[in-house]
Simulated assay, not measured.
Amino acid sequence: MRLLLNIIWLVFAGFWMALGYLAAGIVCCLLIVTIPFGIASFRIANYALWPFGRTIVDRSGVASVLGNVVWIIFAGWWLALGHVITGIALCVTIVGIPLGLANFKLIPVSLVPLGKEIVPAP
């Protein structure tokens, strides 16, 4: 079932989201100071491609908390808002409900990506 959901997700939402996160990662990697944000964006792009069967584990420390505050101010809030809007739009149809829930699953990592690790779901 996870494979089927991931394929449907990839075709209808995941590919375009991953492209957006890849573009953001490339822009973030232009400056040396923002490279950690670029790496986090690449990690989210990977997660956005294939979200079913994986989960997020918190591994935060002091540096990641400070970085997440900066991320929320400049990028996190609009990324999370985009996932909320897209998730609500997908939940309008019965077929789109699992995809909408996957969008809601991406909100925490898009809001505060530093100090998060994406691991296979148990």
Rank of each mutant, 00 (worst) to 15 (best):
G53I: 12
F74P: 04
N103Y: 08
W71R: 01
L10E: 11
V27G: 03
W71A: 03
I44N: 02
F104L: 12
F15T: 13
I39N: 02
I88E: 07
V57C: 02
N46K: 10
A89Y: 14
Y21H: 14
L4F: 15
V65P: 00
P122T: 10
L81P: 01
Y21W: 15
I56D: 04
W78T: 01
P122C: 07
N103S: 15
G53M: 11
F52W: 07
I94K: 04
S64N: 02
A48H: 00
N68V: 10
C91M: 15
L66E: 00
A80D: 00
G87D: 07
V109R: 02
R54P: 01
L5S: 09
L30I: 15
L3V: 15
W9N: 03
G14N: 07
F37K: 00
R54S: 08
V57R: 09
G61K: 00
F12D: 04
W50I: 04
N68G: 07
G25K: 02
V70T: 08
Y21C: 09
G61I: 05
F15M: 08
G82F: 06
T34E: 12
I94A: 13
L114K: 03
T86P: 04
I26C: 10
W50R: 00
C91V: 09
F12G: 10
P108S: 06
C29W: 08
F74C: 11
L90N: 05
P113K: 01
V70Q: 00
L66S: 04
C91N: 09
I97G: 10
G67C: 01
L101F: 15
V69N: 03
S60I: 03
A13P: 09
L19K: 12
F52M: 02
F12C: 12
G53S: 10
L49G: 03
V11F: 14
I94E: 08
W71N: 02
A24L: 15
A48S: 11
L111E: 08
A48R: 00
L4S: 13
I118L: 09
